[in-house]
Write a protein that binds this DNA or RNA. Structure first.
Lengths: 335, 335
DNA sequence: TATTCTTATGAAAACGTTTACATTCGGGCA
DNA sequence: TGCCCGAATGTAAACGTTTTCATAAGAATA
């Protein structure tokens, strides 16, 4: 048998006898033969791998995101190369370089990335999708969360509940998501008194804001934190100060991270289908890989309000919300 | 300039003039040249990539695990290829195959993997480290959590608190971690009355166990759940039944997932340094990659008791535990 | 039986690097 | 001036696949 025949047999080419195919398959199995990926990639110009460039891997958010990406990648037989923890633009550039030439497409989420950066460090030939980005360049495909709409909806929800004095805890100043959420709050809060407190998405900053609010002579009726972690930090500060939620003050967050359901009282929040974000971005990437000339699309992912007890609606029971069951729940088998 | 000189210049070989090196670097930058990874791998027989084969990516546990792996990999300039969501042995085999020939080493965590499986599907030439596994084969390097010791310590802790009637909620029957934890409990619970309830590591199963306990005529004084998610489900069931924790009944878990701190009351648990598990396993893998002939080591990672309010010690304040600060906290910049 | 057509297999080029070995070039030494 | 030596660069083989093209062997047709 020549290498050519073996290659054809193993790749399921039509023009090879069933008999030889069987013979080759048998020998391959006996020899535990595995094709050399690099050699294959070299000639086919495909790696069957996509890269995900993320700012970090810590926390619920990225866990869900990667899960969504992995799910979609696996469905298409693609391998997933992850890279993270780049704290500044230089590290992001290094990571980007290292991925180039090893992947067929790239998923990018990074606060350090903008259009000039991409033109500088990203080959135009490599399909890429940008997530949660302020990059508006039509050249790049993007997938964003509807931060603006979600924040607007939550603000309206608070207004509907009758709160007329609302404090907003902001995210980091240079963060795109944070800016959009703030804008949404501002635009919808018109009828009410609106105050702003500075935060940076960390639980710690939410805690500080909570203490500040508890110490106010005239406290707001409701607090809307730009993400759940801050809301939770705030919740603990308020509780420690003896305030009851939602009786004394209402509280809402953004993201619907799993913890939100478990705190006391359960936290009203804006649900972002994070796994869908990952899945959707990978699908967009695959589409781009298959038809490189198609115009790059800019999609936005809708959010949804999840009312729980922390905003004190009478219709919402304080009973424990049961976890959703999941497909593929092999995690039930791991601690 | 010949390709050889370019190669040498770019790889920092000694025998190339500073002048030509600069010239080549300049041209490379202008042309946005990125070396073709596959071609390089083909000749060097190195991919600079390690693979992680996991049963799933959902939840705190894997999030932390991957973070630890990534941290260590990045420190060594290695890329990380992840593969997950294989629900059965066949899928695990496929995933294993797909990784082979694309990575320099493999990190494996899977309930479906045993020694015969590995001999069948894993090339002996490929360095690998098994995590949380019952595989005792000396041929393979392993890294386990000290499930037995941790469960023993927690049981003793409950005894020290004066509880003499303790219920244990078990994990899945075929799970290695679960079995070890049960064994630890059994061996340490001798002086007390010990009862067992069946669980499967899911929050749902913990909830069921909690209802069952609440309905008992003679309730145990303390409950020890084999993982935190079950403890939390149990907590909600007990609370719904009007029982106060720890006054009416004490509760403890295992893992110290982030949520454990946030529930009410905060959950006493066994801390497993999950990120360390990932980091340690990668370091073991690297060691094996560098000296393939060294005898494969079997390491065990210690656990530590984290006493919180749910086991009602007088010395433990119910004040909110502040989150640990982290290096590399760029996550503060993402929701 | 001779010719053509089809089908299965083989031979060899190509992919983009690295690296062992060959070559060139200039300078120091005799 | 001639020789040798070392440093810098060039040449070419090798890595393990896929794929194009050629070839061989039958089968169908005349």
């Amino acid at each position: 048998m020549s290498v050519a025949t073996v290659s054809r047999a193993l790749n399921g080419s039509a023009s090879v006898t069933a008999q030889t195919r069987r013979r080759i398959a048998g020998v391959a199995a006996r020899l535990r033969y595995v094709p050399h990926g690099a050699a294959r990639s070299l000639v086919t110009r495909r790696t069957q791998t996509v890269g995900a460039l993320l700012p970090d891997l810590f926390g619920e958010f990225f866990s869900e995101l990667i899960r969504g990406i992995d799910l979609a990648a696996r469905a298409r037989g693609l391998q997933l190369l992850v890279s993270s923890s780049h704290g500044d633009a230089a590290e992001a550039a290094t990571a980007l370089r290292a991925m180039q030439g090893r992947v067929d497409g790239l998923l990018i989420m990074s606060p350090h990335v903008d259009a000039p950066f991409l033109r500088e460090h990203l080959s135009a030939a490599l399909p890429a999708v940008l997530m949660n980005t302020s990059v508006g360049d039509k050249r790049y495909a993007t997938l964003n969360i509807d931060n603006y709409g979600g924040a607007q909806a939550m603000t309206r929800h608070l207004l509907d509940c009758g709160y007329r004095d609302i404090a907003f805890i902001t995210g980091p100043v240079d963060n795109f998501d944070a800016a959009e959420r703030l804008k949404g709050f501002r635009d919808a809060a018109k009828p009410a008194r609106a105050r702003l407190l500075r935060g940076d998405f960390s639980e710690e900053s939410g805690y500080r804001a909570g203490r500040e609010i508890a110490a106010m002579r005239q406290r707001p009726q409701a607090i809307f934190a730009a993400n759940d972690m801050m809301a939770i930090g705030c919740l603990f500060a308020l509780t420690e100060s003896g305030l009851r939620i939602p009786k004394d003050i209402a509280l809402a967050g953004f993201d619907d991270i799993p913890i939100a359901r478990y705190v006391n009282p359960p936290l009203t929040t804006v649900r972002v289908r994070i796994a869908d974000l990952g899945q959707g971005s990978l699908e967009q990437l695959v589409a781009q890989m298959e038809t490189p000339d198609a115009p790059s699309s800019g999609r936005t992912l809708a959010c949804e309000i999840v009312p729980r007890a922390s905003t004190g609606q009478p219709s919402i029971s304080r009973k424990h919300e049961r976890p959703k069951s999941r497909k593929h729940r092999s995690s039930g088998e791991m601690p």
